[in-house]
Design a binder for these strands. Structure first.
Lengths: 109, 109
DNA sequence: ATCGTTGTTCAAGACTATCGAACTATTGAA
DNA sequence: TTCAATAGTTCGATAGTCTTGAACAACGAT
């Protein structure tokens, strides 16, 4: 098995898909960490601790299919990177606005 | 029955809740219409045509509990208004960015 | 070759969405 | 006042999705 990763072309990325993907706290946190890091991160380091691997894998699949991240196998691990440039041209300012709101939500709590 | 509407105080409105609510095409469309209109709209006129009432009702409930709209009974109908000012202070620029992206998604299709 | 690490796939139970049917509440008319 | 029409809500059932343990696959190092 172990099917290859599927990344949608940027034209078929939908707003609904992006919002749905980011509506989950775990997935939002993953994207936040990826955006902070700048470069790629493997699955474990970008996801919150103590989360079952199968659940992580599911979340990365959602993010991938939404068009938010690109996943590449690098030896034993999978390196995930934000597709920021592509998304930035398709939906200018969208992801930054959401990440900014995530920071705002954090400071109030 | 017919319980009174519950509107969360703006402090307990979460980013996840907003994103989740707007991740559905029907709900996003409702918010778009409400934002265009400026003033309140009843449930039927803001929702897409040919949608079962029970489903509409469910969607409005999600929007209400997410803190995006305020619903008030006015006689036989329910008037819904965007809570734009409150959301704008809690998450500045968030909803406008999403609505802008919705327009961008439309023009490409 | 075997083992440890990283991540995927599968299956089952819990949770959520959709929608028809029945119900509630208010308005207007007879 | 009673009756009917209108606008939404609630309930129940079916179908789809999330979570997670268990088993599996792939690579690197010893």
């Amino acid at each position: 098995m172990q099917r290859p990763f599927v990344h949608p072309p940027i034209e078929s990325v939908t707003l609904e898909g992006i919002l749905y993907a980011l509506a989950d706290p775990v997935r939002l946190e993953i994207i936040r960490r990826l955006s902070k890091e700048g470069c790629g991160m493997n699955c474990q380091s970008a996801a919150p601790m103590n989360m079952p691997r199968s659940t992580q894998s599911h979340h990365y699949q959602i993010l991938r299919e939404a068009g938010l991240i690109r996943s590449e196998r690098r030896g034993v691990e999978v390196v995930n990177t934000l597709r920021c440039d592509e998304i930035g041209t398709r939906f200018p300012g969208l992801v930054p606005a959401i990440l900014k709101a995530a920071v705002a939500a954090e400071t109030v709590v």
